[in-house]
């Protein structure tokens, strides 16, 4: 086809609706809230939720993944536009990783050797990693489907960010159920579950976010 013919044809198409950050955010938050609410209404929140939340350490278990959710979702949205530099959006994520690492080290220093990994067991691990992964499936799928409407310059990185957002959103909800308040446990295993989701969505991104 001659280029001028192609242009004539393209010009006849009706314009698509604009890519809307607000729409993507809304859909993702809805998916996270729906999945975790369904989970919490079946499994219940921890019985001492309100008392426990007064402890800064327990509150961080919820706040840390919640901030990761907000920041990674913002970064994923930024990367969905070709002309926005993603590097600015990635820096706060590093800061968050640093906070998590410091919490881990502080807990390691403060706890006696037999307390450090007392909660680690086959059941607690599969419960924590299993539920967080499971709860992030729908949000991850929703977010990636929405990001297809965007135009990411690096589909793998966009996919990974989508997984960070979905995984941390799921972890935020799961933290209201979880009774492991030792940072050595939750930083490690929440982190592991979130990164696992992120690796999977990076692979999905390389397939579904190309254009």
């Amino acid at each position: 086809m001659k280029t001028q013919d192609l242009i004539r044809r393209l010009a006849q198409d009706t314009p698509p609706p604009p890519f809307s950050e607000r729409g993507v955010t809304l859909a993702t938050v809805l998916a996270v809230v729906a999945c975790t609410t369904a989970f919490l209404s079946l499994a219940g929140t921890r019985s001492d939720l309100f008392a426990a939340m007064l402890s800064p350490l327990v509150a961080t278990k919820t706040l840390l993944p919640a901030s990761l959710f907000i920041l990674s979702l913002k970064a994923a949205l930024r990367m969905a536009r070709p002309d926005r530099a993603p590097s600015h959006a990635l820096r706060p994520l590093l800061l968050l990783a640093l906070v998590a690492a410091l919490m881990w080290l502080r807990a390691f220093a403060n706890l006696s050797p037999d307390q450090r990994f007392a909660e680690v067991g086959a059941f607690s691990l599969s419960e924590c990693v299993g539920f967080i992964t499971l709860l992030s499936v729908v949000p991850a799928a929703v977010l990636i489907a929405r990001l297809q409407h965007g135009a990411s310059m690096s589909p793998i990185r966009s996919g990974a960010l989508a997984g960070l957002a979905a995984g941390s959103g799921a972890a935020t909800g799961y933290s209201l159920f979880c009774v492991q308040d030792n940072p050595l446990f939750f930083v490690t295993w929440y982190g592991f579950a979130i990164l696992l989701v992120s690796v999977l969505t990076a692979l999905a991104g390389s397939r579904f976010l190309r254009w």
Binding site: M1, T3, L6, I7, L10, D13, P15, P16, P17, P18, F19, A80, R81, P82, D83, H149, G150, A151, M153, W211
Partner: peptide, 27 residues
Amino acid sequence: QEVLLALHRKRHTWQPDLPIRPWLYAV
């Protein structure tokens, strides 16, 4: 023509309040 098609299919990712050139060249 492939570039034109890509511009066409992703034209809704340009933010109308920003200059178009950076977007255009990136795509």
